[in-house]
């Protein structure tokens, strides 16, 4: 197997070059078609073993990775923190060593602690893919957001994207900031000042305090989930007020000078950060995001395994 063009791991978009990000998006394109086939399977990762290690509940991301792995013919095992040795107090480093001892090829990890993916990556020889670590990064989510935006606009350079909501606690926001900046898009953050780290301005990101101004500026909005715990922790006074001051509503979008594309990483709180008629409306690309998620994850798995940029050129690539 040739060495991977992405390096050993995918820990975050901060660590990828523009070329590597575009390579993943380009590699994802032909994989989209695999999911449209009657028999949704190619042999690209036949004989590879992959563990999906989820220390946090997840539906969308876990299933998306699992489909990506299966459609590439990998052998996969799912481990959730409850019902595993983790719930018996095993440390992450011991879990890592045990996985290593079983000679697995790849680990997909979701973990509540920022840095957990990097921690694992530096301790095992297997490829590690970050499926979300604490408040740090969620690189495949940002990659699928980029792919969805590129599908819609045809290009990413110069695009204006406003990331709205709880940026402080969001790994999706961090990965999107890095990804968008690297492909030449403009990024703004919008939300209550309690949830927007001002320091991001130093990365070349715009801060727009009011949602109406963000809507007027942007080509696309990436609306983040607002977790209910944020109210209890005192970051916002109430969900009702949040919706009134920062919610993405149809009325607000109708006042915009142009039509905006609306993204949301899910799961949505309808009526809080986003109104139902926006989520279900003509400008929402929320479901195409989910479809693209599988293709992007197939591309990442395939490239990390050392695959050639176009999988059809690999030996056995066109086999059905």
């Amino acid at each position: 197997m040739t060495p991977s063009s992405l390096g050993k791991d995918l820990v975050g978009l901060e660590f990828l070059s523009t070329e590597q990000i575009l390579l993943i998006l380009d590699t994802a394109e032909p994989f989209k078609e695999v999911s449209e086939r009657a028999i949704k399977k190619v042999p690209a990762l036949r004989g590879k073993t992959i563990v999906n290690l989820f220390f946090e509940p997840s539906t969308r991301t876990r299933i998306s990775f699992e489909f990506a792995e299966k459609r590439l013919s990998a052998d996969t095992v799912n481990v959730a923190s409850s019902g595993s040795s983790v719930s018996k107090g095993e440390t992450l480093v011991d879990t890592a060593r045990n996985l290593e001892a079983m000679r697995i090829d790849m680990v997909v990890i979701r973990h509540p602690a920022s840095g957990a993916a990097q921690f694992l990556a530096s301790r095992i020889r297997s490829n590690v893919i970050n499926a979300g670590d604490g408040k740090h990064e969620h690189p495949t989510q940002a990659l699928l957001d980029l792919l969805t935006l590129r599908d819609h606009f045809g290009t990413l350079a110069g695009l204006k994207v406003a990331i709205c909501g709880d940026v402080l606690h969001s790994r999706v926001a961090r990965s999107n900031i890095w990804g968008l900046l690297k492909v030449g898009a403009e990024v703004a953050l919008c939300g209550p000042a309690t949830l927007i780290p001002r320091e991001f301005e130093s990365l070349g990101v715009k801060l727009i305090p009011r949602i109406d101004d963000a809507i007027a500026w942007a080509d696309a909005l990436n609306v983040l989930r607002l977790q209910l715990e944020r109210m209890e922790a005192g970051f916002i006074p109430s969900l009702r007020e949040y919706n009134r001051v920062f919610g993405v509503t149809r009325e607000r979008l109708e006042r915009a000078p142009k039509d905006l594309v609306i993204l949301h990483p899910g799961p949505m709180n309808r009526g809080v950060e986003i109104d139902s008629d926006v989520a279900d409306g003509p400008h929402s690309v929320i479901l195409p995001q989910v479809t693209n998620g599988v293709a992007v994850r197939m591309a990442v798995l395939y490239l990390l395994a050392g695959g050639a940029p176009d999988w059809r050129s690999a030996p056995g690539g066109e086999e059905r």
Partner: peptide, 10 residues
Amino acid sequence: EGIISARLGL
């Protein structure tokens, strides 16, 4: 608390 904590998500 600063740019590094913001980036690292800590």
